[in-house]
Simulated assay, not measured.
Amino acid sequence: MAQDDPVVSAQWLQQHLGQLDIKVLDASWYMPQESRDPWQEYQVAHIPGALFFDIDGIVNRATDLPHMLPSEEAFAAAVSALGINNHDKVVVYDGKGFFSAPRVWWMFRVLGHDKVWVLDGGFPQWQASGFNIASSCPDDAVLKSKAANSAVETAYNGKLANAATFQTEFRPQLFWTLEKVKQNVAAKAHQVVDARAKGRFDGVMPEPREGVRSGHIPGTKCVPFPEMFDGAQTLLPADELSKKFEQEGILLDHPIVVTCGSGVTACILALVWKSCMLFLDISFETLTLPSSL
């Protein structure tokens, strides 16, 4: 496993599973219309030793907007409750293969933790590889996952949580606010890339959330996230990924901002862009993600 490579294979994880400094997180999350319960599915089947990371729970509790980045204090409290410290290597996966796990990968990175990877192909690839699956959920795993959510709530209620074992360091260059995006519409200093389906991008398909307008940010280009994978929901080779951006007129050596509906699938493009940057030997710090749209 290379430090800079954003993914690990199921084979790599199987070989290293159980090491004390390897922490595995199930970050499964599904769109509302899918009617799937990730917490329930985790309790039925997950990678042995994995803990559940609740994308709907470890969020900014001071806003009604979905999936807004939590404060440093709240994130540190939640990750500490999961038993993770800054020396640990974190591997994140999800139940669709490559969908919501990159969101948690980005959260760790924007808050200062580089030792984080996404399982290429996720839980489906783990299953297809024939590796062991845990079919029961230990009480300790349930308590830790619930404690993580409670720690976020405690932090936003202005109360002190238990002493954090995980320390954060916010990286503003990986995070854009709505105001920055509005300024960029006029300045056009950054390329903006949308991960949603073309129909949603063009405004001919409705948004999945009631009351949200269709269409896209002016000047944005569309690279739908499903185009990043092969039939097994594993990442395409870096040269093929690069071509996907180039075909849309996106300059790989120029800074980009990625966006989507609520800040989940945009992180897939963030991870893909990092892979492309490694392939082309370009600094990844040219990429940011607007998580406050």
Rank of each mutant, 00 (worst) to 15 (best):
V142E: 02
V142R: 05
L143K: 03
L143H: 00
A147P: 08
A148D: 02
N149T: 10
A151I: 05
A151P: 13
A151C: 05
V152F: 02
V152G: 01
E153R: 13
T154L: 11
Y156I: 07
Y156P: 07
N157Y: 12
K159D: 11
K159L: 15
L160N: 13
A163M: 07
F166H: 02
Q167H: 15
T168S: 03
E169W: 01
F170Q: 02
R171K: 13
P172L: 10
L174I: 04
F175K: 10
W176H: 13
T177K: 07
T177A: 00
T177I: 06
T177G: 03
T177Y: 03
E179M: 12
K182V: 15
N184H: 03
A186L: 14
A186D: 13
A187R: 07
A187Y: 03
A187N: 04
A189V: 10
V192Q: 03
D194R: 09
A197W: 01
K198N: 14
K198E: 15
K198F: 09
G199V: 04
G199P: 11
G199D: 07
F201V: 12
F201G: 11
D202N: 11
G203P: 13
G203L: 12
G203S: 14
E207D: 14
V212R: 00
R213P: 15
G215T: 04
G215E: 09
I217T: 09
I217R: 01
I217D: 08
I217W: 09
P218A: 01
P218K: 00
P218F: 01
G219W: 02
T220D: 10
K221D: 02
C222F: 11
V223A: 06
V223E: 05
P224N: 09
P224Q: 07
F225R: 06
F225C: 05
P226F: 04
E227V: 04
E227C: 00
F229W: 06
F229Y: 11
G231F: 02
G231W: 01
A232F: 06
A232L: 12
Q233K: 14
T234I: 08
T234G: 04
T234L: 05
L235V: 09
P237K: 06
A238T: 09
A238S: 14
D239W: 03
E240L: 10
E240K: 15
L241Q: 08
S242P: 07
F245A: 11
E246Y: 05
Q247W: 01
E248H: 14
G249L: 10
I250T: 10
I250A: 06
L251K: 15
L251Q: 14
D253M: 10
D253H: 12
D253N: 11
D253S: 11
D253Q: 12
I256D: 08
V258C: 15
C260G: 11
C260P: 15
G261Y: 05
G261D: 03
S262N: 03
S262W: 04
G263I: 07
V264N: 04
T265G: 07
C267R: 01
I268H: 04
L269Y: 07
